Simulated scan of single mutants.
Amino acid sequence: MSERNEDGLSRRALLQRAALGAAALGLSGCDRLSQNDALLNLLGGAQALNMTAQRLLAGDALAIEYPASMISPVFRPNGSTDPQTDLYRGYLANDFTDWRLEIGGLVDNPLSLSLAEIRAMPARTQITRHDCVEGWSVIGQWTGPVLGDVLARAGVQPQARYVVFHCMDQLNGRNFYYESIDMVAARHPQTLLAHSLNGEAVPVANGAPLRLRVERQLGYKMAKYLHGITLVEHFDDIQGGKGGYWEDRGYTWYAGI
């Protein structure tokens, strides 16, 4: 059994976070981290070992959930905080009443869901810790349908291996943010399409109207400002072909903690 500190962190997780923090010392923001060769080499070397160890040892174990008394006064946002794309500003101006989440690709029944329909779905509420690759953490309460349940409605085809999340924000003025996870992570019971944070609608800074929560990975995997989900066999032909905005710029695809 692994040793854990007062927050429940395993020795392996503590060592990993310490290494990440040391590599990132003096940097601010994921854009600057992506220019740090030492950090990228560290992440790349750890990816295969981390994924194998976590999947073998942890299986479908849940991330630690916390009491309400530990919710952070402010949930610090990561990544984009106020998207300026025409796509996003148009939906925001109408309070997302005409926004829809399109789910397609390798599914039997493509879905087009309004925010009201997503809010009406059976939901899970969980209080978890968000760990950013920059070295900070924050605890918040998230509510939303379990992604696996939503995908089951769409009917996942056997050849689907990855779930790709399409977002409405741009970090470089050209490419829209995107992310991906595999079917194991997608079907984890704590992987949510979160519409609420701390009992209120997710704020713009934290990803309104809908964001991904995949609690056993680092924050850059938790795509914000969602408007589309595509199930694919591979992601070689999507943007840079590495499975995510930051992955295309050198980050590891698997960011388990």
Rank of each mutant, 00 (worst) to 15 (best):
G8V: 01
N109K: 12
I118V: 08
T52N: 12
A93G: 04
L92D: 06
D7A: 15
A53L: 13
A93E: 06
D7H: 15
G21Y: 01
G21N: 05
R17L: 12
V107H: 00
N94P: 00
S69F: 04
Q126L: 13
A68Y: 02
A123N: 08
A61C: 10
A61Q: 14
I118Q: 03
G21E: 12
R124L: 11
A93Q: 04
L39M: 03
R100D: 09
N5C: 10
E65P: 02
R17W: 14
I127E: 01
E102N: 08
H130F: 14
L43K: 00
R76Y: 10
A22S: 12
L9Y: 12
N41Q: 14
T128C: 13
E6K: 15
L57C: 04
D108G: 02
L40R: 07
Y88L: 03
Y66I: 07
R12L: 06
E102I: 10
L9S: 07
L14W: 10
P77Y: 05
A68N: 12
R76S: 12
F75Y: 10
L101H: 01
F96H: 05
L27H: 11
E6A: 15
R89H: 04
Y88W: 06
P67W: 04
C30W: 10
R12V: 05
G26H: 00
L92F: 08
D131V: 10
S80Y: 00
L15M: 08
L42H: 09
M70I: 00
R129H: 01
Q35W: 11
L33C: 05
A24G: 09
E65I: 02
P110R: 07
S10K: 07
N36A: 09
E6H: 15
C30K: 13
A22K: 07
Q47R: 14
N36F: 01
L25R: 13
M121E: 02
Y91V: 02
Q16G: 07
L56S: 10
L115Q: 06
A48Q: 14
Y91T: 08
L92Y: 05
A123K: 11
D37F: 06
